[in-house]
Simulated scan of single mutants.
Amino acid sequence: MELDGRFGIVLLVVLLLGIGLSLFQHFSYQRATRRMVAEHQGARESFLVSGRGKGWLRGAVVLLVVDSSSSRIEAAEAMVGASVFARFRPRPELLGSLSSARDRAKDKHLGEAVESAIAQYRTLRKKR
Rank of each mutant, 00 (worst) to 15 (best):
E45G: 11
S97L: 13
V49R: 05
I118R: 06
E74P: 01
S116E: 07
F88R: 13
R91Y: 04
E77Q: 15
L16A: 14
A101E: 09
R58Y: 05
E112P: 00
A43S: 06
D4R: 15
R6A: 07
L3Y: 11
V49A: 07
A75R: 12
D103P: 03
V114M: 14
R125T: 03
W56R: 15
S46D: 04
M36N: 11
E77W: 15
G8S: 02
A43I: 08
A43T: 03
G51I: 02
S83W: 12
A78R: 08
R6T: 04
L63S: 06
S116R: 07
Y29C: 01
V65H: 13
E115I: 10
G5Y: 10
R104Q: 08
L21W: 04
D67E: 07
V10L: 03
R58C: 00
R44I: 04
S97M: 06
S116N: 15
L94K: 00
S50A: 10
R89F: 08
A86Q: 11
G42Y: 05
F24K: 11
R87Y: 02
Q30G: 02
F24C: 02
R102L: 03
R128C: 05
S46R: 11
F47N: 00
R89C: 06
S50I: 05
T33A: 11
G5A: 14
Q30L: 14
L16C: 09
